[in-house]
C-alpha cells in the first residue's frame, strides 16, 4: 500500500505494479497528482508539468 498520490506515490506504485505486485494507492483528495499537477512548468526544459 502506498499512502499519498503525489509524484512520489504515483512513481512508487507504478514501479511496484510493473514489477508484479498488487498495489493499493491511497489518496486523500479526489484526484492524484499532488503539488506537481499544479506547477506551471518544470526545470530545466520548462516542460509543462502535467
Amino acid at each position: 500500500m502506498v499512502v499519498g498520490g503525489g509524484i512520489a506515490g504515483i512513481q512508487a506504485s507504478t514501479d511496484l505494479a510493473d514489477a508484479g505486485f498488487y498495489v493499493y494507492l491511497v489518496e486523500s483528495s479526489s484526484a492524484i497528482g499532488g503539488v506537481m499537477a499544479a506547477l506551471d512548468k518544470t526545470f530545466p526544459t520548462n516542460d509543462c508539468s502535467i
Binding site: 509524484i7 512520489a8 506515490g9 514501479d15
Partner: peptide, 23 residues
C-alpha cells in the same frame, strides 16, 4: 518513505526516492 515527507526535496529526488522505496 518517499518524497518530501522524508525531508524537503525537488521532483527528481522525490521520483528517485519513490523508485528506491519501491525496491
Amino acid at each position: 518513505v518517499a518524497g518530501a515527507f522524508q525531508g524537503p526535496k525537488a521532483i527528481p529526488d522525490s521520483v528517485i526516492q519513490a523508485g528506491g522505496s519501491a525496491a
